[in-house]
Design a binder for these strands. Structure first.
Lengths: 164, 164
DNA sequence: TTTGCTCTTGCAACTGATTGCAACTGCAAG
DNA sequence: CTTGCAGTTGCAATCAGTTGCAAGAGCAAA
């Protein structure tokens, strides 16, 4: 089942409609691989149809999150990132507090903690959207050496490949 | 060492000053036990000295976080909560996606995951500020029963006692 | 005391994101 | 076709939070 068909099915199941705006947001997500800001998604949508409002983009992204078509995470720079979950399973993110690098990790990595929390507190951890703040390896090394390698200081939110 | 003395020492160590504004924010944090919003803290500070600006409160809270006097977390309702860490050790929070209840957990609970992430990715997890989204026990039970108990629907961000 | 420096602050403007609302759309029933 | 209605949208207002900047305050050296 293609992504559009999946969306259509999810919408129909709740009596919602497949509108041009929603198609445009989905297309933008397809094109913008990896983690994109709402502003970036809006820019792509707006380029095709200038009348679409950014509030519609936000509402659509929220809807897509309910449908598990999209996950989002906040890397702590005040700009939430949205990721298309077409093929990838829901996953979590390690975000470096210093350089902003994002490392995706699978839910499997978090499962032992989730099991512990379920047993101890009866708390069921969501499979998506867990963002763990800390220091990536280069920044941690740099911090302990009190010297920061210059090539790790540029924030970029490109996601790495993760072995699953 | 009292809390004010600790703050003074931390400030001095970095050549910063103990101002009335900073004392007022600290006092407000003392008074507002548990998790308070910036607005609530500002309200208390403003009641004592009306000329203090909310931007000063935000900047002060950020400074206190650097000093580990305060930790903050985002329960997902768009209003960040700030907690005084006077006696408590840094800890994490489980936030229920449905009712908004916040359950504090110790860093010890997260340590196995942190150790795994350090080993696998070289990523060093921060001791504070990890917020885990999911469903609390009542809401999870309600969801599987497709019926929500009425007494668990009111969001409150009072923190429970946690056994450490 | 005067000078010069840094830290600190209030103010205003701004950002990313959300919300209320009236207008519009698609669609099914009469 | 007309009516009714739920769903949807663009617009404007609003919200929490951040930032730039100029003025002010503290403090040490001359």
């Amino acid at each position: 089942m293609s992504c559009e068909e999946l969306l259509l099915a999810r919408l129909r199941a709740r009596g919602l409609r497949l509108t041009p705006q929603r198609e445009l947001v989905l297309a933008a997500l397809h094109h913008l691989e990896g983690a994109a800001t709402a502003e970036e998604i809006y820019a792509r949508v707006h380029a095709v149809s200038a009348s679409v409002d950014i509030s519609t983009v936000y509402r659509t992204l929220e809807l897509f999150q309910e449908f598990q078509l999209v996950s989002s995470f906040d890397p702590g720079d005040g700009k939430r990132r949205y990721e298309h979950l077409g093929v990838e399973a829901p996953h979590h993110h390690l975000v470096c507090r210093v350089c902003g690098q994002v490392i995706p990790i699978s839910h499997g990595d978090v499962r032992p903690l989730a099991a512990y929390l379920a047993e101890t507190y009866g708390f069921v951890v969501d499979e998506g959207d867990l963002t763990i703040s800390g220091l990536c390896a280069p920044c941690h090394a740099a911090q302990t050496n009190a010297a920061v390698p210059s090539d790790s200081m540029t924030p970029d939110y490109q996601t790495q490949q993760v072995e699953t």
